[in-house]
Structures are given as C-alpha cells and as structure tokens.
Design a protein around this nucleic acid. Structure first.
Lengths: 211, 211
DNA sequence: ATTTACGGAATGAACATTCATTACTCATTC
DNA sequence: GAATGAGTAATGAATGTTCATTCCGTAAAT
C-alpha cells in the first residue's frame, strides 16, 4: 500500500483539481472576510491559495463566479454542521441547546466563514442559484419552529420567520460584538445568551398582551 | 422682512457651505448603503448630491474622510433620536418600549442610514475619532442596563455588554430579514418581537440553571 | 511527443484625485 | 440701482494608480 498521505486520495486528475478548487475557495473566504468583497483584489487570493492568478482563472470564470462558489460552499458547510443527524421533527429544549452548541462551535472554529456569510455586500453578486442555498438552511429551521409551536414548546405568538430572524440576529450580534472587541465571551456568557434566546422564543406561560 | 424661504437662514457663506456639506453626506450615505463602501465610486455620490466631483473634494479631503464624516453624522443622528429626553436613570418596561419604538421609527424613516450603520466594512476605514462615536451611544445604554439590573427589573445573569449585543443583534436581524425579503413586518409582528426581546432580558423569576 | 496545467507579466478598463478653466458672489463704484 | 471686477466656488476633463482579466512562455503529466 502507498504512503499514508495518499491512502484516501489516489490523486486522479479530477480529484487533484477538486482539491485545488477547495484550496482557492478557502483562501478566498479568508481574504473576503477580512477586506470585504469589493475590497479584495484577486491577486492576494491567488497568493494565499499558493497559486498564480492565471491558475485561479482556470478554476473560476470570474471574481463573481468565485464569490458565488465560496458562498455556496460556506453555506453548505454551515448547513451540514448544524443539521447533520439532528431530529428536527422532535423539537425540545435539548435540541435547541444542541443547535446553539453547534452554531457556537462553527463560529469559533471557522470565524472567517461565519463572518463571510454575514457580510452585507453579497446580494448584489449572487446568482439566483446561490441565493437558493440560503433556503436549504432556512426551511428546516422554519419547520422546526412550526412543530415546536404546535407542541406548545415554543410561543406561537411569533411567526416562525420572525422567530428565526430574532434568534439568528441575536446570535450574530453577540459574535459580531466579540469580533469588534466590544465584548469577550466566556463559556458562561454563551450559556447565558443561549438561555436568554430560549426565553425569548419559548412558551413561558405569561399572559397575552391584550392591548 | 424677506420672503418666507429666507427667514430661518439668511444664507451667510459659511451657512451655505454647511448646507452643501450635508447634502453631500446625505447622498454619500444613500449610495454607500446601496453599493457598499468599496463598491461605490466617488462620481455617483457627487451626481446624487447634485455637485461636481471637484466640488466634493473641496468639502472632503478624500473618500475616506467622507466615509468618516458620513459615519459620525449617521451615528449622531441615531443617538439623538434614541436618547433625546429619555430618562435613562429610571429604567422601566415603558422606557424599553419607548426605546424600541424610537429604534423602529428610525429604521423605518431612514432605512439607508440604518443599513449604512450596520455595514461591516467600515472598520478598516474609520479613524479612532470616528470609532469613538460608537461609544457615545453604547455607554448610556450600558448604564441603563446596569441600573435596570440593580433595580431587579432586568435579569442580572447577562452582563450588560452582552445584553446590549443580544438586543441590538436581534433588532438588526429582524430588519435585515425584512430588507432581504425573508419577511414582512406588520406592526403586530414588531410588537411581538419587542416583547420577545424583553423576555430575553427581563427578570422573569425562573430558577437559575445550576448545571 | 503531445496535451494539459501553471504562473505572472501584459492589457485595458475603472477608479480616486487633481487642476486649469469657467461661473458665481458681493463689496465697491458711479 | 446698475455696473464692475477681484476674489471665491464649482466644474469635469486629465492624471496616475489599481484592478480584473488575458495570454503566452514554461513545466508537468500522460
């Protein structure tokens, strides 16, 4: 058998290509996250990926295509990490905690990816196909909320999309604050934030406001 | 007495200049909000402001200086609208509601300003002075939270900076979702969101998690 | 030996900024 | 109150720079 480094991938041509593609996407993600989409020239991306500019353009038709590829790749990775082996059809407090823990792990382990996904300036670049990547994550989450509301676990006062926006916004806000040094987050802080988010959405039996 | 249009401002030279400055800042804000900071060339800003490019450069040393001016101006306006005549030293549910209502009004009436302030790519451009504009809003809010916690009105489990980040993030998330068409917000929705945020931060007497 | 991949200098377009010119303002003069 | 012109503001074509993309000489793969 061959050396350890080649066990998994006897590098067929297409395989090596796919590998280099990922290399470039990964580099792009990091530089984009740091300098913004319009703000980063292509050459630094090629540098960081360890390839020439010409090579980069062999793998991606344009900067715009690269942005779209990076976006879908990132969204996909986030989706996988959040939803894999998760029983969305049986919402519970424990499920919520798992979701939070996974989200936290993602934001901690791939901060650039997380930041990249939350950047504003995507939407002028994204193709319709890329934009549909969003849905792949949003729909399952929405289902989870709806079921949770039916079960009486979550408050049914918030409409599902609104509940998700609140929750997601709060999470992003907390990590954005840490990134900008308004804040440092201990594990304890993250637990408190998680519980606060739960309180916002859960069916704590306080009376309806009848105003 | 002169005609009505000149009652308030007998346009002295300096006054007219200040007026034009504001014109440019306002235009810049709008174009920046739409296309991002790196993404907008200077000429379109001048166009929208109704001045020549050269003129713009008479009022601002550089694009960067214009960005900083626009940022401080926007932050200032937000701060004024949120805090004017607000008795921060006596937190209450009513005060929270007022704050939410003002924030909502701001996001509705000046959506570009709101969006501009939440854009990510500022921080590479901002001077130390501009960055300190943030503080002017954050410090009073922080005080309010601290007092609210002392009073037993707000949960003292969240540290103040974290509470603000959660609340602000949630608010931004909700309006971002609306802007990106994931959502439409009725007045009723906004009330629900407000109540949910309050639940997250308020001192609802649920037992401490002792895990 | 031929095809395919690579790299980075070369190209043209778009940009931020400047500057020579034109248009205005207004105190002064008649 | 009209005319003047010196000083000031406004302008947008011109400038140098930076960028996205291309292309060709070289290296690797088959």
């Amino acid at each position: 058998m061959a050396s350890a480094s080649s066990i998994a991938t006897p590098p067929s041509r297409t395989n090596r290509e796919a590998q280099k593609r990922e290399q470039i996407i990964k580099a792009a993600l990091q530089v984009f996250a740091e300098h913004g989409l319009h703000g980063t020239p292509v050459p630094p991306i090629a540098d960081k990926a360890g390839v020439g500019v010409g090579t980069l353009y062999r793998y991606f038709d344009s900067k715009e295509a690269l942005i779209n590829a990076a976006f879908c790749d990132a969204k996909q990775r986030l989706q996988d990490r959040l939803l894999t082996d998760l029983d969305l059809l049986n919402p519970s407090r424990a499920l919520f905690d798992t979701l939070w823990a996974r989200l936290t792990a993602f934001a901690r382990q791939e901060p650039e990816t997380f930041q990249f996904l939350e950047m504003q300036d995507h939407h002028s670049y994204l193709t319709a196909e890329s934009r549909s990547c969003e849905q792949a994550l949003l729909i399952p989450l929405g289902m989870m909320v709806i079921i949770g509301q039916r079960n009486g676990l979550l408050s049914n006062r918030l409409k599902p999309d609104l509940a998700i926006a609140l929750f997601w916004g709060a999470f992003v806000g907390v990590f954005k604050a840490e990134r900008l040094n308004y804040l440092t987050l201990s594990d304890e802080d993250l637990k408190q934030a998680r519980d606060a988010c739960w309180l916002a959405m859960s069916n704590n039996n306080s009376g309806e406001t009848t105003s």
